[in-house]
């Protein structure tokens, strides 16, 4: 079973249809780019998949669990990193890791091992006792991502993870995403950077609550006769 399956997933707020009957599947271990202009309905769709918002109609399964009835199980199987930095700035690096590990039900031994592993991977052993608030933004984002996949989720949702980050750090960040995908984690990522869209295995583009296109970047470019994903995006988003 694919890690994410939706069938005619719809969310209405009063008369406004934020997400209009979207149907798609995400394959295991792929990096799935979820694109769309601001207000196209990406965030609403993502919130439904994370169990934060009840859909109005349609079906969705995340890691094999129904998002209507099994939200707790969905939440256990996913990691999530929002565009707002969401580690505690007044806790140290170590305390943050310990806290998030703890609430995902890792044992004390697991927390200890994972912490050591993570610190070493990010090369911030020395900063382990520092308050997170004192770290540079790039480090914070990388730490945030590492914490989001601390409990080895089947799927990780990344909501504009590289906003405001410098190009070098962005590149490093994408290396981390690749590494996670290679180890079997399915990555569901939204972004406004079209060069990042090129890094994805497959990309969907949402316009006005509907998925207008879904394919590999190469196939999309040839279909829309465009040189870059940027052109593809502009054609679709501006088309209406």
């Amino acid at each position: 079973m694919n890690p994410i399956i939706t069938r005619s997933l719809t969310k209405k707020f009063g008369n406004f249809i934020a997400t209009n009957a979207i149907t798609f599947e995400v394959l295991p271990g792929e990096i799935f780019g979820f694109l769309g202009a601001n207000g196209a309905g990406k965030t609403t769709a993502m919130r439904m998949l994370c169990g934060l918002l009840k859909p109005s109609s349609g079906e969705a399964f995340v890691a094999g669990y129904n998002v209507y009835t099994q939200t707790e199980k969905v939440k256990k199987s996913i990691g999530y990193m929002s565009q707002r930095f969401s580690l505690y700035e007044d806790l140290t690096v170590k305390e943050n890791i310990r806290f998030y590990g703890g609430i995902y039900g890792l044992s004390n031994q697991q927390i200890k091992d994972k912490t050591a592993q993570l610190l070493q991977k990010l090369g911030i052993e020395k900063e382990a006792g520092q308050l997170v608030g004192a770290l540079p933004l790039g480090w914070k984002q990388k730490l945030s991502f590492s914490v989001a996949i601390l409990h080895d989720p089947a799927i990780v949702f990344l909501d504009e993870p590289t906003g405001g980050v410098d190009p070098v750090t962005r590149r490093q960040f994408w290396d981390m995403i690749y590494e996670a995908a290679n180890s079997g984690v399915t990555v569901f990522v939204t972004t406004h950077y079209m060069d990042e869209a090129e890094y994805c295995n497959r990309v969907s583009i949402m316009v006005d609550g509907k998925i207008e296109a879904l394919d590999t970047p190469v196939a999309l470019k040839s279909h829309y006769q465009a040189d870059t994903m940027n052109d593809v995006f502009l054609q679709l988003a501006r088309g209406k």
Partner: peptide
């Protein structure tokens, strides 16, 4: 205010 509640809401915390 600081947005951490959103992060907590996607964790299995009841």
């Amino acid at each position: 205010e600081i947005g951490t509640i959103e992060q907590l809401n996607v964790t299995p915390i009841r």
